[in-house]
Simulated assay, not measured.
Amino acid sequence: MAEFKIVLSDRETGRSYKIDATGPAAGALIGRRIGEEIEGGVLGFAGYRIRITGASDRTGIPARRDLPGPARRRLLLSRGVGFHPVREGERRRKSVRGNEISADIVQVNAVVTQRGSKPLDEYFNRPEAAAE
């Protein structure tokens, strides 16, 4: 079965959390696409909604939202995810992945879109959160 490292960003607090997803939590992400929202209960965060914002595979190749499917492809890029030009008009052929999450993906980036009743700090047992 697939295993993912999920980097969950909370824009309200400015913090990011790393989640190791295996088993049913990882299975719930297979077949999803960048930009889709999922229920946080799948990952153990009741009441939360989470949007997938990006991903990368084991070699660090990023996934692009505008490329359908899970496969790796070599595209001629002029800007965007996977290539940042140095000179004006520069284009380069780069490897990128499609927008579908598959077993080849290692890291999934996500952001909180709807908050639950408990703050995220309580899920991660952060003692400084209780003191605030």
Rank of each mutant, 00 (worst) to 15 (best):
M1Y: 04
A2P: 15
E3M: 10
E3Q: 09
E3P: 01
F4N: 03
K5H: 10
S9F: 12
R15Y: 15
K18D: 14
K18N: 13
K18V: 12
I19V: 15
D20F: 08
T22W: 07
P24L: 11
A26F: 04
A26W: 06
A28N: 10
I30G: 02
I30R: 05
I30H: 05
G31Q: 10
R32D: 07
R32E: 07
R33T: 15
R33Q: 15
R33L: 15
G35P: 03
E36K: 11
E36D: 14
E37H: 12
E37D: 09
I38K: 11
E39Q: 14
G40A: 07
G41A: 14
V42I: 08
L43H: 02
G44P: 01
F45G: 06
F45R: 09
A46P: 11
A46L: 09
A46G: 08
G47D: 00
R51H: 04
R51T: 03
I52G: 02
G54Y: 11
G54N: 07
A55W: 09
G60E: 03
G60C: 01
I61Q: 09
A63I: 02
A63K: 12
R64K: 06
R64C: 08
R65T: 12
R65G: 15
L67W: 05
P68D: 10
R72H: 00
R72V: 02
R73A: 10
L75K: 07
L75C: 04
L76C: 05
L77C: 01
S78A: 11
S78Q: 13
G82L: 02
G82M: 03
G82F: 02
H84T: 08
H84A: 07
H84W: 01
R87Q: 07
E88G: 06
E90A: 12
R92Q: 10
V96H: 08
R97G: 12
G98N: 00
G98K: 00
S102R: 03
D104T: 04
I105C: 04
V106I: 07
V106S: 11
Q107H: 08
V108T: 04
N109Q: 14
A110T: 02
V112D: 02
T113E: 11
G116V: 04
S117V: 13
D121C: 13
Y123W: 13
Y123M: 09
Y123K: 11
R126W: 13
P127V: 09
E128H: 12
A129M: 05
A131S: 07
A131F: 11
A131V: 09
A131Q: 10
E132V: 07
E132Y: 10
